[in-house]
């Protein structure tokens, strides 16, 4: 397959070696080349992915989803809810209203959780930045395991019948069915374009900071330094990475390029993906928002299940890849 990113590498090379005349092979040249190449690639993919997924999203509204998933039990609905979670917006301010909306429409708790787990984990911006930095294969693994973690986690929560740990008022909400006016294709394009502007506008600074840190690490840190301390033989590396990631609230778009440079220095891909997943899947601010609708016991179960699932995923990738 031809490398579609070749022109960006060409630009990065031209700027580094010809325009700025930096000696190839030096730390500075490596850093700069990494930064220019990554920025071009990340922003291109960000715009393309956000646009495509926003366009798809204009068809899959939460209103439609909850009507389809309402009152239905069974693992296939966990899969459906998890898939819906991949295309819905990742802004955590929407998680509580969607949670209540689903429960109110009779979507079982476990199915709702499948949605709730996958929604922040798999989103268009993370997919774009992962693809730009770690390549297609790692991104596909990330997305597939993100969906699976949602399915399994949600199924487990449904299995244990934890409905009593949802705040009582959630069951008393009655909402009017509200159907959004149908959009024509012009409006869908406008919506997708607005999403590109709004999301890129929000994440660009994190990407630039992350790429810069990653670039410096790439150019100046000794080769293989992480393979030595956090390689595959160190079984504690995955859980430690995840335990660091769980409370960490950071913009994952900025972390991904840093992790890319860590992989370059020998951090195994499973450990890296587990770390990124733990940062996105559970965060303190999200738990604080969810506390409005969930009792502490259920939040603990939620965090516990996701943490275990992510650690397991990390080990699995380290073994398979």
């Amino acid at each position: 397959m031809a490398d579609v990113f070749y022109p960006m590498q060409w630009i990065a090379d031209k700027v580094t070696y010809d325009l700025l005349e930096i000696q190839a092979g030096t730390g500075l040249a490596d850093s700069l080349n990494f930064i220019i190449y990554d920025i071009l690639k990340i922003f291109t993919l960000l715009c393309v992915m956000i646009f495509l997924i926003a366009y798809m999203r204009s068809y899959i509204t939460p209103e439609r989803s909850r009507r389809i998933l309402g009152g239905k039990k069974g693992p296939q609905y966990n899969v459906g809810a998890s898939l819906v979670g991949t295309v819905t917006p990742f802004c955590s301010c929407s998680s509580v209203p969607i949670f209540i909306g689903f429960i109110e429409a009779g979507v079982p708790l476990g199915v709702t959780f499948s949605f709730l787990i996958t929604s922040p984990l798999v989103n268009e911006a993370a997919i774009a930045v992962l693809w730009a930095t770690l390549g297609f294969k790692a991104t596909a693994l990330y997305v597939i395991s993100g969906v699976l973690i949602g399915v399994i986690g949600g199924y487990a929560i449904g299995f244990f019948k934890l409905e009593k740990y949802v705040e009582g008022f959630v069951y008393n909400v009655h909402s009017l069915p509200f159907e959004e006016a149908k959009m024509n294709s012009r409006q869908r394009l406008d919506y997708a374009f607005d999403e590109v502007k709004s999301i890129v506008g929000k994440v660009w600074i994190y990407v630039v900071i992350g790429v810069s840190i990653g670039g410096l690490f790439h150019g100046f840190a000794p080769e293989g330094i992480l393979a030595e301390y956090a390689g595959k033989d160190n079984l504690l590396a995955v859980p430690i990475a995840v335990l660091i990631g769980v409370p960490l609230y950071s913009n994952v778009m900025g972390l991904i390029p840093v992790v890319e440079s860590l992989i370059g220095k020998g951090l195994p891909i499973g450990t890296s993906l587990a770390f990124l997943m733990s940062v996105t899947a559970v965060s303190l601010p999200e738990m604080i928002i969810l506390k409005k609708v969930l009792k502490n016991e259920l939040i603990a179960v939620f965090v516990g299940i996701v943490t275990i699932a992510v650690i397991f995923t990390g080990y699995m990738f380290n073994i398979v890849l």
Partner: peptide, 22 residues
């Protein structure tokens, strides 16, 4: 507050209601 927002059936904010009509 979430209860009022949801009572209008809006799950993704922001929402806009004019004279009770979403």
């Amino acid at each position: 507050d979430y209860e009022t927002i949801l009572s209008y059936g809006v799950m993704i904010t922001p929402g806009l209601v004019i004279d009770g009509e979403v």
